[in-house]
Write a protein that binds this DNA or RNA. Structure first.
Length: 539
RNA sequence: GGCCCCGUCGUCUAGCCAGGUUAGGACACGGGCCUUUCAAGCCCGUAACACGGGUUCAAAUCCCGUCGGGGUCACCA
């Protein structure tokens, strides 16, 4: 029975690299009919764990990476918080000491540091002298009489080689002589991560330890504990870490300011901020950024697209397939096709994959995705009235593939407000209406035709405009830009006739009328200003 | 610095283990088509085996070395 685990520390956020690890653990367990366990590695903490794990659980849930055991779902190995399992670790420490694999050490931190410095000065690797090691009660009593306090250290081998058969990296060898006598229990009696991790992996029956590459160097000390305690050695698989945009450095949430300088990354963030602004949010930049999973959830990305992108960050099936649904991933994923080199975070590629997943959604699915965003800004009610549904459906259909994430619906405000609330882009308004008296004249004439038009379907409207254009001997482009700006306030948008049809005759006429009169006023004011400007110098 | 890992187009990668490919794909980029704007779509194109030695008829692929990048060396996880 395969059992894998994802064991984050409660830091208050879930970043892309962590999710990628969780995904691979989840995929591996699921496709082997095994279990995926979520464990919170909080051996260090006195912070508010409940608050700090919330974003982690929420992120995994959103992505559909369900866990069989862990926080909120329980399981036979409760509790799933390391902070609540100390007695187990302490028992393991006693066992290690009894077996001669660990010892009480009474060195003061500054004494260790002095040895370390001495080694550094002589350019030789640091190995603790074990001078304050206490292996008998008499030793302990003597050191304690000096007022020393003990930590427990691993009594690591000092010669020989450890061979690890890693499922991703193959055979890796470590000389034992390079290993330290790591501390496994603090002076205050609490136990440290490496010990806790090994004990829990054993207690929870973890068969495959799948984690990021940065743990590869930590593996020897863990294997030492595993063997000293007589546990079966789990299979290890060390995934390449996720690197920052345009570099091979490990992704770090602390270097955000630097990533923003990367154009693609910056664009992705900017797009997100625009949507947040339309929602009236001012999110915490520490959490609302493309390194964090929360960012994608709030903007209406598709979980499946994120999963697809993440899977490709360090894994490939073959030379050409890159679109994967969740089911595809479950079917085709395999650890032996995981890459060894780090993969850097590529914002553009993430967008491209999101677009492909979005494009295959049905209108109905897209509608449901977009609905909460519209409700949040008050365009439609909860639940929406029939006519609101219809309008929303029409806009979503007309916008088509322009809506790349659910939050993109918010750029179509003009279809959800009345004519008096339409906002005009200043540049477009000036160019297409204020400074285009001919365009205004054509628009005025066309409005008369629109007023008599019964059939307001896109096709009929297009035919109407065609006829108008032919009769006047002009080109479509001579009028359509003015029409677009007058009706939507914008220079760009989806098909003009779809837009007119959605708004309906009364609204369209009202908008044209308003735009025309505003443009005339602006022109008059402009002429006046120009005239005044000329007069002033002489006067 | 020691130990460990990694190095194919700008990016993500296939190919490497079992040597022989015009070194393939996608994203990005450039050009064209389409066109009422934008997006999409379609067609075409630019672009890579870190370097140096071997082994071999033949090396991205096997061996050695160099260089470069990264990880790790806590009473953090």
């Amino acid at each position: 029975m395969v059992r894998t685990r994802f064991a984050p520390s409660p830091t208050g956020y879930l970043h892309i690299g962590g999710v990628r690890t969780a995904l691979f653990c989840w995929l591996f367990a699921r496709q082997h009919g095994g279990q995926f366990i979520l464990r919170i590695d909080d051996t260090d903490q006195d912070r508010n764990v409940a608050e700090a794990i919330e974003p982690i659980l929420r992120g995994l849930r959103w992505l559909g990476l369900d866990w069989d055991e862990g926080p909120e779902v329980g399981g036979p190995h409760e509790p799933y918080f390391q902070s609540q399992r100390q007695p187990l670790y302490q028992a393991a420490v006693r066992e290690l000491i009894a077996r001669g694999a660990a010892y009480y050490d009474y060195a003061r931190p500054e004494e260790i540091e002095a040895e370390r410095q001495a080694a550094l000065a002589e350019k030789r690797p640091f190995v603790y002298s074990r001078r304050w090691m206490a292996e008998t009660d008499a030793d302990r009593a003597r050191f304690e009489a000096e007022g020393r306090r003990a930590v427990v250290r691993l009594k690591m081998p000092r010669e020989g080689t450890l061979v690890i058969e890693d499922l991703v990296r193959g055979r890796v060898e470590f000389p034992w002589s390079m290993e330290q006598d790591h501390v496994i229990q603090r002076a205050d009696g609490t136990c440290l991560y490496h010990l806790a991790s090994v004990v829990d992996d054993y207690e929870m029956g973890i068969t495959h330890v799948i984690r990021a590459e940065e743990h590869l160097s930590n593996t020897p000390r863990q294997v030492f504990i595993v063997e000293a305690l007589g546990y079966p050695r789990p299979q290890y698989a060390h995934l390449p870490f996720v690197a920052e945009p345009g570099s091979k450095n490990k992704l770090s949430k602390r270097k955000l300011a630097q990533y923003v300088k990367n154009k693609d990354f910056g664009d992705l963030l900017k797009h997100g901020q625009e949507i947040a602004a339309r929602l009236g949010l001012t999110p915490d930049p520490e959490r609302f950024n493309p390194v964090m999973i929360e960012f994608y959830e709030r903007l209406g990305y598709l979980p499946e697209a994120i999963l697809n992108y993440l899977a490709l960050l360090g894994w490939a099936l073959d030379d050409s397939t890159e679109f994967f649904t969740r089911e595809d991933l479950l079917r085709y994923f395999s650890l032996d096709r995981v890459n060894r080199a780090p993969a850097s975070f590529d914002a553009k590629r993430l967008r491209a994959i999101q677009e492909r997943h979005m494009a295959r959604l049905s209108a109905e699915e897209k509608l449901n995705l977009v609905l909460p965003f519209c409700q949040q800004v008050g365009w439609v009610g909860r639940p929406p009235r029939d006519e609101e549904w219809q309008r929303l459906r029409a806009v979503v259909t007309a916008a088509g593939e322009r809506i790349k994430v659910a939050g993109d619906i918010l750029q179509y405000e003009e279809f959800f407000v009345r004519h008096e609330a339409v906002r005009y882009e200043p540049e477009a308004f000036r160019k297409r209406l204020v400074e285009a008296p001919k365009g205004r004249e054509l628009l005025r004439e066309f409005a008369i035709l629109l007023g008599k038009q019964e059939d307001f379907s896109p096709a009929a409207l297009e035919a109407l405009l065609q006829r108008f254009v032919e009769e006047k001997g002009i080109k479509v482009s001579d009028i359509i830009h003015a029409l677009r700006v007058a009706v939507t306030g914008k220079a760009i948008g989806f098909g003009m006739f779809d837009g007119l049809s959605i708004l309906g005759r009364e609204e369209v006429l009202a908008r044209i009328g308003r735009a025309l009169s505003l443009a005339e006023q602006a022109e008059a004011a402009g002429e006046l200003a120009a005239r005044v400007g000329k007069v002033e110098p002489t006067g």
